[in-house]
């Protein structure tokens, strides 16, 4: 037991070193912009760059739409599968896992060929269409995470009983979903939303191939042309990811806990 604990510390220390050294190095590098002294100049340059503001704003907006689209697709489906069509569960789960198997670049390649300006559904024929297609693409990328988060949330509440109780009290479907189910899975939905945000905000492949002015391609562009700003951007991106994950953790403390788990 004693030697076991020793090795546990060794493993933990090695892991901590591997994970912290790049972070420390990046912070250090990001502050080297002014010769001979540490400074936050790189951050000032980054935040002052109008392209940073524009692309970041664009990506935030895209993420918000992605979350809305994801919720609209996932919540009713997950709810309906639990309530009425459990026989479809394996099919739906399989589909939601597909984006982990099919690389994003392949999916977006398919979009470009299928929804080009000469196709019957010319998403890429207009700005709005291309923006919509990017949101759609991001929604597929986030599908595995969103579905699992919501499905886990639904599992902790007894969907069937809640629905039947609401029906007996005379509620219609709209009321049931918005007043009964959504509030109860809100935490799960928000967790999925923040995860989606973390994935989408710096996404490069889809945005770049669809020629969207998003944050990911901007990052890449800065990385190819500047020295210290990329390090500052890496730290900013890490902080954003950290923020999303912390919010998820804080939220999980408010998640409903039910003793009554049907499955």
């Amino acid at each position: 037991m004693k030697s076991g604990r020793f090795w546990a510390w060794v493993v933990f220390a090695l892991g901590a070193a591997y994970f912290f050294i790049p972070l420390i190095a990046t912070v250090e590098f990001s502050m080297r912009m002014r010769r001979g002294a540490y400074s936050f100049d790189a951050y000032k340059v980054v935040f002052g760059d109008p392209r940073f503001q524009a692309t970041f704003g664009y990506s935030v907006l895209t993420a918000v739409f992605t979350i809305i689209l994801g919720v609209l697709i996932v919540v009713p489906t997950a709810y309906w599968i639990r309530l009425r069509m459990p026989q479809l569960r394996p099919v739906v789960e399989f589909i939601t896992l597909l984006p982990l198997v099919i690389p994003a670049i392949v999916i977006v390649f398919g979009y470009i060929r299928m929804y080009g300006s000469n196709s019957p559904l010319p998403f890429l024929g207009s700005e709005t269409g291309a923006n919509a297609l990017l949101v759609i693409g991001y929604a597929t990328l986030a599908l595995p995470y969103m579905y699992r988060a919501v499905d886990t949330g639904l599992r902790t509440i007894d969907v069937r009983t809640l629905t039947e109780a609401a029906q007996i009290l005379g509620a219609g479907w709209g009321t049931i979903i918005t007043r009964v189910i959504l509030p109860n899975v809100l935490i799960a939905v928000l967790s999925g939303a923040f995860l989606t945000f973390a994935i989408v905000i710096g996404e490069f492949t889809m945005a770049s191939l669809l020629n969207r002015p998003a944050f990911g391609p901007y990052l890449q562009n800065v990385g190819a042309n500047r020295a210290y700003e990329p390090a500052a951007l890496a730290i900013i991106a890490f902080a954003i990811t950290w923020g999303c994950m912390s919010l998820i953790q804080i939220l999980s403390r408010f998640a409903p806990r039910s003793a009554n788990r049907p499955n």
Binding site: T26, S30, L219, A231, A234
Partner: peptide, 24 residues
């Protein structure tokens, strides 16, 4: 949870700052 989602372009920047020719 954070690091598993810290991928893409920023991760490359971090490693360039660490193990690049001028990395720490």
């Amino acid at each position: 949870g954070v690091a598993s989602n810290f991928a893409g372009v920023p991760l490359a920047f971090a490693f360039l700052a660490t193990l690049g020719r001028l990395g720490l």
